[in-house]
Design a protein around this nucleic acid. Structure first.
Lengths: 142, 142
DNA sequence: ACTTGACTTAGAGTGCGCTCGAACCCGTAG
DNA sequence: CTACGGGTTCGAGCGCACTCTAAGTCAAGT
């Protein structure tokens, strides 16, 4: 598989694939006789996993660490595992954090909804039949 | 409250506070007669909310939009609400995404744990009493 | 033979969100 | 009087993760 096809199939851009190879996130790809990269489909699995790490907010620095361990072969299994376990905790913490913010957001939105409703009720009460409230109805609070 | 104290109490750096004011995320602060910013404690609530938006991944660009609406007063309530509602969906989606990745991570980690266990079992089976397996036990698969 | 299009490299540029440096000003304590 | 611990502005610099440009190579199609 050439780089263009890999790009299409992985969702990364050609530029990004080369960039990842340059920094060591992707292993140095074999070249054909005209120096073009020739990929094995197996790389897709690795790229997909990198994507997960990225999605979950792992910085490239750390992915490089993981990639380097992977390159060293199965003896590094324990180390890789512990790295992933640490990362998993970050992800869990992040999810919890987002959940908490979501509640705040809900409250805030409910507040706006409330204010809106109160305004409508007020208008209904005082300007029934008028489709335009008079200009004095511009409020002062923030 | 001067900028230093606000920094301590908000968790932002003095630099960041000035930066936020510069770009319009914080309202232009009143200055005392020697041109020093003098803050009302109310600003802390706003900063905290900005922090939530930031935590949940809202880009500054969008926060600026929200901040601008806020500056315009309560007439912009509906717009602000819809902006937050849109953002809330992003946050929900993000949480779901992270949850999915978490499962993948769990699986991967379980895989490493498994491999480790199999190695130990194998060693226990074949090298009982030896605390060091011989050198030929270096595997070949990735 | 020539065009096309996909590839190569090295290195420069981009957008984001800060972060810092230089040079200066001000009010208070010793 | 002077030193200090704040503050001020403006603009440059940084770390991250790409993203793109320039100049060139190569293989296949017409």
């Amino acid at each position: 598989m050439k780089i263009g096809e890999l790009a299409r199939r992985s969702g990364l851009s050609v530029h990004t694939i080369r960039y990842y190879e340059r920094i060591g996130l992707l292993p140095y790809a074999d070249r054909d006789r005209s120096h073009q990269r020739d990929y094995d489909a197996a790389i897709l699995v690795w790229i997909e996993f990198l994507g997960r790490l990225k999605t979950t907010g792992m910085p490239i620095r750390e992915m490089l660490l993981y990639a380097a361990l992977r390159e060293k072969g199965p003896v590094t299994g324990a180390e890789r595992r512990s790295l992933l376990e640490k990362h998993r905790e970050h992800v869990r913490a992040r999810i919890a954090e987002l959940g908490a913010c979501l509640l705040v957001l809900d409250t805030k939105i409910a507040g706006y909804a409330d204010a809106e409703k109160r305004t409508l009720d007020y208008d209904a009460e005082h300007f029934r039949g008028n489709d335009k409230p008079p200009r004095a109805r511009q409020a002062r609070a923030r």
